[in-house]
Amino acid sequence: MSEPPKHHPPHGLNVPAGIGAMLFPGLGHIIRGEPKRGIMAAIGVLGMFFGGMLIGGIDVVDSREDKWWYYGEAFVGPIAWGVDWAHQNQFKAYGIPGNPPEAGEAGVFKSSDRQLQSEHALRSVFPGERRAVVDVEVAVGNGVKVETRRLPVAIPVQEGETDAGPPNNKSLAKVNEIGTLYALCAGMLNLIVILDALFPTLKPKLPTSAGNAAKDGGGDV
């Protein structure tokens, strides 16, 4: 029966590095004192994430219409959350039918809380439409109370509006798939990077001799 070790190996948990890795890809390894690993991890993860956006557009990061893919993309961290926020709040619009606002007049748009979650739900603006923030009369609760809200609405482009169009083009087919795959792989790889930063692989300390301390480092494949 072997004797218990005289010195317990260092605990394999580095919370500051883990938090740093969650905030920005590769930051955890930089905090741990491994800047080369951190920089290369950042290049890989961010290269995939922004490469996916370059290929498929901002449409590849969508927490509403592609939520299962977004659950993986979200592991990239606040960058992915911010991109999704911008996509939902700056590019999408509600599909509320109504009269388009004409010069000097407000359009008439009516909806309800239930409809805003279903048939009028937030969606990408289609070709032939434009995005406009207008006053919408929203029936609240059972419809007894009506309140006016400023909401982005998808409005059909009128004849003569030559420079109007959707704020972004929705990606389709293989381009959308590949772009989404890029962003998803970025999230999954960053999860590995986060776990490696949070739980560093430790090598057991060698029998004592001066200056013969083992270092923390990545494990083998």
């Binding site: 290049i43 922004f50 290929i55 557009g57 959308n176 772009g179 890029y182 792989c185």
Partner: peptide, 26 residues
């Protein structure tokens, strides 16, 4: 980064940089 690229005819070539980036990060 807002609009998609028109790479429908060459989408399979995009798997090459993906493989390289996965290897770099991993």
């Amino acid at each position: 980064f807002i609009d998609p690229l028109d790479l429908h005819g060459a989408w399979f070539w995009l798997l090459l940089p993906l493989a390289v980036l996965i290897a770099i990060a991993y």
